[in-house]
Amino acid sequence: MAYRLHEVAKWVQASSGNESGTPDTVRFGVAIEESDVVFVRSSDEFEPEWLNLVRELYREVKVKPVVPVGFLPPNIEEEASEFDETWGGIKGWLDKQRVNSVVYIALGTEATLSQEELTELALGLELSGVPFFWVLRNPPESTQSVSEMLPPGFLERVKGRGVVDLGWAPQVRILSHDSVGGFLTHCGWNSMIEGLMFGRVLMFFPMVNDQGLNARLGNGKGLGVEIPRNERDGSFTRDSVAEFVRLAMVDDSGESMRIRAKEMKDLFGDRNKNNRIVGEFICFLEENRPPRCPE
């Protein structure tokens, strides 16, 4: 359970350039030192070994409780009204695909792909032969549209089998659709929760921050595959993208991870279980709240 070298280099570079002028390492250190309790968006049922390790570490440094709050799965109904205008067309395309056949790709908004990375990912998806729905946004402050950065002829060659959506998409509703079988994700914890609450097998493609460790966690739990990257510079090839997308989505050798991911619905998507953990969290707050100040 560790960062790759290229992830560390990118994280240190981003941290040192923080707009606040205070490196993230200092901010994290102060938060750890000054806090009285640690809340974690997870559960003992999912990762007891890591939560217990955190508890041991905090007993050694400064005694403080570590309390899981559950996964707080999002509500599809709350997302529905925001994307009513765009959902109809997306649903129409998904309805035409076979059950569990589509891989959904979304890499978040905090980091962007370079031209080389975008090209390799696109050509890898093409080589895989797997139907896909790819949410792709324009790089911030770029004068070039991301659609212009795609390989020449790519959109024409994948037409019908693949969709590239250049706007905001209703991620939870897409992941909930029966035709979606997998999620190629940047491994933001929120996105991983959304994928696993519907039992989607994951293809890990971490970009920044804690995403590398999230990928190691999911990979170690057998919930998907991590697309291989060069240890030093983070580069990857179209062939590895195609190979690991097929492994996750269609190859017989990937069946065990697809089954394992489906089992996660009973943990990540069970509202009764999650509400029980939230209830325990609320009880903790009530029992440990400071006394009221005299009026």
Rank of each mutant, 00 (worst) to 15 (best):
D239F: 09
L184K: 04
V241E: 11
D210L: 12
L166D: 00
S191A: 12
M207I: 10
R216N: 11
R258G: 04
C293N: 09
N219E: 13
R216T: 13
A242I: 02
E194I: 12
K273V: 09
A215Q: 07
C283A: 13
S256T: 12
L267W: 02
R260M: 02
M192A: 13
D239E: 02
E295K: 13
C283V: 03
F205N: 00
R271F: 15
P294V: 12
G182T: 09
G234N: 08
P291M: 03
P206V: 13
D266T: 15
Q171S: 07
S253R: 03
E255K: 08
F198C: 07
V208N: 01
R216G: 08
L166C: 07
N275Y: 09
S256W: 06
E243T: 04
L196I: 15
V245G: 04
N214C: 13
R173C: 14
W168R: 08
D270T: 11
T237K: 10
G269E: 14
G222E: 05
Q211G: 14
G279H: 07
P291K: 03
G222W: 00
V201E: 02
G254Q: 04
V180A: 10
G254T: 01
G220E: 10
G181Q: 04
K265N: 08
V278Y: 08
L184N: 04
V208Q: 02
L196S: 13
G181R: 01
E286R: 05
Q171K: 03
V278M: 11
L184V: 10
A248L: 08
R229Y: 03
G199F: 00
A215V: 10
N190Y: 12
F284H: 14
F236M: 08
V245N: 02
K265V: 15
N219L: 15
F204T: 10
G218F: 05
N275V: 08
P206C: 14
M192D: 07
D266L: 15
E231S: 11
S256P: 07
A242S: 15
V225C: 01
R216A: 10
L175M: 13
S240H: 01
R232C: 02
I259G: 03
I277T: 09
V180I: 12
Q171T: 08
K265W: 01
D252K: 06
P291F: 04
N219T: 15
R276Y: 14
R292Y: 11
F204W: 04
V278F: 13
L217C: 07
D251C: 03
L166Y: 12
P290G: 09
Q171H: 11
K273G: 10
G220S: 01
V250S: 09
V180Y: 11
R246K: 09
V241D: 14
E231M: 01
M203C: 14
A248S: 12
P170V: 09
W168K: 06
V241Q: 09
L213T: 09
W168V: 12
L213Y: 15
F204M: 15
I227S: 04
G182M: 04
D252Q: 11
V225Y: 05
S256K: 10
V245E: 00
I259A: 14
S191H: 08
